[in-house]
Nucleic acid binder design. Sequence first.
DNA 1: GACAATGTTACAGT
DNA 2: CACTGTAACATTGT
Length: 253
Amino acid sequence: MPELPEVTTTVKGLQRVLIGLVITNVWTDIAREVPSLKHFKGTLKETSFYKKFKKEVIGSKITKVERRAKNILIHLSNNKTILIHLKMTGHIIFGEYIFKKKENIWVPSPTERKALFDPFNRFIHVVFSLSNNKQFVFCDARKFGKVTLFETNKSDETTHLFGIGPEPLEESFTFEQFKNQLSKKPAGNIKTVLMDQKIIAGIGNIYSDEMLYNVYRKTKEICSKKSCHGVILRKVVNGRSAHYCSTHQILFN
DNA sequence: GACAATGTTACAGT
DNA sequence: CACTGTAACATTGT
């Protein structure tokens, strides 16, 4: 469930298991950097993308893993960084996998923990094999996710990160700064602003809902705020479901 | 079958 | 130019 906190959890997990390992192979069943988006077709040759990706990644050591907005950044020893965006349903699995050649699929080793056999984990699209004979797997039911590569020292220029706003957990991020950013915006939906990655990084639909009162996907339920008897309603804001209390929250449009 | 789903981007319209 | 709303991406789960 990838917004800032979930991506952070993923990154922390990867830091524990990936640092110092060498990437020995890359397998994928997708042809493009972004499996689905049409607009990447023009700039990236479909079949060549992962060929090149593979070449640049194999043999390098993982030196550092970090998060920027909702992106996972895996820094390599050769001035390359693997960038993974999980989008809606992408997730990462680390474990021991076995490749079934006949069926062209990856399955968890029979000795692996039960969670890896969960049907949710069956949409495997990119597999990185590592020097400890384990695999680091990108799994995504909807194929919205992005797995790509950029030059580490060009992180300020890469289109994948360009223009992303401040990290809310950085010390440099202050209330004053946020207020200043807000004042530049015309009056409008606060939810839209909270989810705008250029204003503040990492907030998505669930957390923006929670910030504005805590009732994500509780449509029709009775408001749980003390002595409030409102009912939770749903309204589409900025193309996404917004949930709010009919009594103690007011919508202006 | 209809609808909703954690994200982002292109595009049409105002 | 700035902003807004919608469709698209691909697929599953309810």
